[in-house]
Nucleic acid binder design. Structure first.
Lengths: 344, 344
DNA sequence: GTCGGTATTGGTAACGTTACCATACCTGTG
DNA sequence: CACAGGTATGGTAACGTTACCAATACCGAC
C-alpha cells in the first residue's frame, strides 16, 4: 500500500527500492537487468519491493550512462490527421520494435520552423536516429553535420542539396502512367491538381504528368494547372475553378489524397444541386483513399503502401546505425506504385 | 567545420562547448538559459561555439536534475492508421504546446500488453502526465497507484472500476438519437454493427441503440446484432451476413467508422456485381468519414470532433497537473455529438 | 588446512546538467 | 579611499543509474 502523499510525490528511486528490500542499489539494478549472479531469494525480495513501491527505472538517467543507447527513434511527419502518414508511422514503428527500439512521434504541420524545433528536441533527447517527412521549406536544420552525427532518413519527399538516405515513391513513373491512361482514353485536356513545387512530391508528380503530355505533343495549359492547395477545402475550390472554365478539362490528374478528396467534394456538391451524375471529368488520383470504388465518377488510383514506405525508411536507418562505416555514401530507394484502373 | 570521425562520434557536451569558447560550463548553461548576468561578448562566443560544434542540450540529463520537469506528455492511442485518433492526438498536442510541453505518441494496436509496456516506458521516461485511449482489456496497469502518481486521463473509452479523469463522447445519447431517427422513418428491423462489449464505446453505443428500440417496444433480435468486428474486412463480412438473412434488416446502425466503411464496401460490392443501387438498408454511422455525402445509399452521420476530444483530455490533464490537490476526486466529461441526417 | 576459483554483494565513480555558494570585479557614494 | 551593493564568473555537489573494482563467502581439490 502506497502512502498517499502531497501532490509533489516523486517516482521512487532505486535506492528506495533497495532500502525497502534490505539490499544495495546494485542488487536491485542487477535483478532488474536479468538477475545474473543474484540469489533467487534476494531477487524475490527486490521484485516484491519494486511492485510494492511502484518503481519504474528512470530511463533518462539510464541513457545518461556512457555507452547506453536511449532506445529511441525520432519520427517527424507533416500531418497526423492524414491516415497516409499514420500508416507510415506504423511501418516505422513495426521495424523499430523489431530492433527493440521505440519511436517518438512528432507532427510538423508542414511548418518548417516547427520541424527544426522538433528535430532539435529529438536530438536533445538523444534519439539514435531520425525519420523525417520534410516539410519542404529551407532545410538547413536537416543537414547531417548539423545533427551531431545522428543518422537521418528522409521519407516520401526529398530535399534538394541534402545528401542523406532517402526513400521515395516512384512519383514520376506513377504520375506518368496515370496521365498516360487518361490520354489513351482519348482525353487531351487534363487538369492538374497538386502540391506546391517546393515540395518534392509536388514537383516530381508534375514532371510525370508533363512528360506523358509531351509524348503526345501536348504542351501544358497553365489555366488547367492548380498547384497551391494544401488542404481539402482549397482543393475543392481549385476544382471549382477548373470546372467553371469555358473549356473545362475532361479529365483531372490529382497529385495527392487531399486534392482528390477536394475535387470529389466539388463534384458531389454539383450533383446534389441538381446536375446529373454525368459530364464530370474522369479522375486519376495519386494516393488511394477509402471507398474510392464508391464514387459517382470513375476514379483511377495510383496506390502506394504507406506502411511499406515506413518500413523501408526504418530499414535504411537501421542499416546505417549498424554499418561499420556510418558515413558511407547516402542511399536512395524508390518504391513502386500500382495503378488500379477505374473499372468502367 | 566538424572533424569527420569514426562512427562512434558522440554529441558534444557542455564542457566541450565551454572549452571551445574559453569559458566555464556554467557560463554556457547560463547563456543557453537566457543569458541573464552574462557579458554579451561571452554570450556571443558561447553561441558561436554551440553552432560550430553542433551542440544540443542533453534533455535527459537536464530532466535528471531535481525539480526539473521532463516537459513530456505521454499519449497512447489504439490505432495510428485511423484518422480519428490522428486528429485526437493533434488536439492533445495543440494544448500541450500551449503549455510548453511536447507529446510522446505511442500506438497500442488495441493490444493490452503493448499498452502496459508503453505506459511503463512513458513513466520510465519521466512523462509528466498520460493521455490514454484504453484498449479495453484488463487495466491493472492503468490504476493510479500503479503509475507512481503520474496523472492519467482516459479518452474516448472508460474502464470499469478505474476512478480517473475521463473524457467521453455522448455515446449513449448519440446512438439513441441515431437509432431513433431510423425508427421514425418507419424502420423496425435495424441491424447493429459494433465493437466488442468489453470496449466501453461498444457497450455504451449498444445501450443507446437498445434504449431507442425499447421505447418503441422492439426487443433486439440477436441475429441482427454483430459485435465482434475490429477491422474493415470483418465488418464487411458481418454486413454480408446481415444482408443474406431471409428477413434482412431494412436499416443499419453502425457503431463506428471501421464498421461503417466495411458495411459500405459490401454494398458497393453488390452494386458492382449487378444489383441496382436500390433496396439497400439505410445507414446511420457513429463517427463520420470523408466523402460520406458521396455514398450511393443515404448515410446519417453521428459526428464528433476528434480534435476537440484531444483538447479536452489534455485540458483535464493540465488542470490536474496544476491543481494544488492533485489527488482530488476524478472528473468525467461527456462531449456532445451532432447528428447530420442524410438529406434524401 | 590451505589454496585457487567462483558466486554473490556492496562501494565508488562517472554520465551531462544546473542550483547553490563563493569569489572576484566593478561602480558609485560617503 | 574604504565600503556597500550589485554584476559576472567559476567550483562543487547532486540528480538516478550502472560499469567497474574490491570484498566476502563458499566450494572442491590437494
Amino acid at each position: 500500500m502506497t502512502s498517499s502523499m502531497a501532490p509533489g510525490t516523486r517516482q521512487p528511486t532505486i535506492k528506495e527500492v533497495a532500502a525497502s528490500a534490505g539490499v544495495s542499489p546494485m542488487t536491485v539494478s542487477r535483478t532488474l537487468a536479468g538477475g545474473v549472479n543474484v540469489r533467487p531469494d534476494l531477487q524475490a525480495k527486490v521484485l516484491a519491493a519494486v511492485k510494492e513501491l511502484g518503481y519504474f527505472r528512470n530511463e533518462n538517467a539510464r541513457s545518461l550512462r556512457p555507452g547506453q543507447a536511449s532506445g529511441l527513434i525520432g519520427v517527424a511527419i507533416t500531418n497526423l490527421g492524414n491516415p497516409y502518414y499514420g500508416n507510415f508511422a506504423l511501418g516505422v514503428e513495426e521495424v523499430a520494435a523489431k530492433h527493440g527500439k521505440r519511436i517518438v512521434l512528432g507532427n510538423t504541420g508542414e511548418d518548417c520552423g516547427r520541424e527544426a524545433q522538433l528535430v532539435a528536441d529529438f536530438i536533445g533527447r538523444q534519439v539514435e536516429g531520425l525519420v523525417v517527412v520534410p516539410s519542404g521549406g529551407a532545410a538547413e536544420h536537416l543537414r547531417a553535420d548539423r545533427l551531431g552525427d545522428t543518422p537521418i532518413v528522409l521519407a516520401s519527399r526529398q530535399v534538394a542539396g541534402l545528401d542523406v538516405d532517402t526513400v521515395l515513391l516512384d512519383d514520376v513513373g506513377g504520375a506518368y502512367q496515370g496521365t498516360l491512361s487518361l490520354l489513351e482514353s482519348g482525353h487531351t485536356r487534363i487538369g492538374f491538381l497538386g502540391n506546391v513545387p517546393s515540395v518534392s512530391t509536388g514537383q516530381r508528380r508534375y514532371i510525370g504528368y508533363e512528360k506523358a503530355l509531351a509524348e503526345r505533343g501536348i504542351s501544358p495549359d497553365a489555366r488547367l494547372i492548380q498547384r497551391d492547395q494544401q488542404d481539402v477545402e482549397a482543393a475543392r475550390s481549385a476544382m471549382e475553378r477548373l470546372l467553371d472554365l469555358p473549356d473545362a478539362p475532361t479529365a483531372i490528374f490529382s497529385a495527392n489524397n487531399r486534392n482528390t478528396i477536394g475535387a470529389l467534394k466539388e463534384i458531389g456538391r454539383r450533383i446534389r444541386s441538381g446536375a446529373g451524375a454525368t459530364g464530370f471529368p474522369a479522375i486519376v488520383s495519386f494516393d488511394s483513399f477509402e471507398l474510392s470504388e464508391m464514387m459517382p465518377v470513375p476514379v483511377t488510383v495510383i496506390d502506394s503502401d504507406a506502411r511499406q514506405l515506413g518500413r523501408e525508411a526504418a530499414e535504411l536507418l537501421f542499416a546505417r546505425l549498424q554499418a561499420a562505416d556510418s558515413h558511407g555514401p547516402s542511399r536512395m530507394i524508390e518504391l513502386p506504385v500500382t495503378v488500379s484502373m477505374a473499372d468502367r
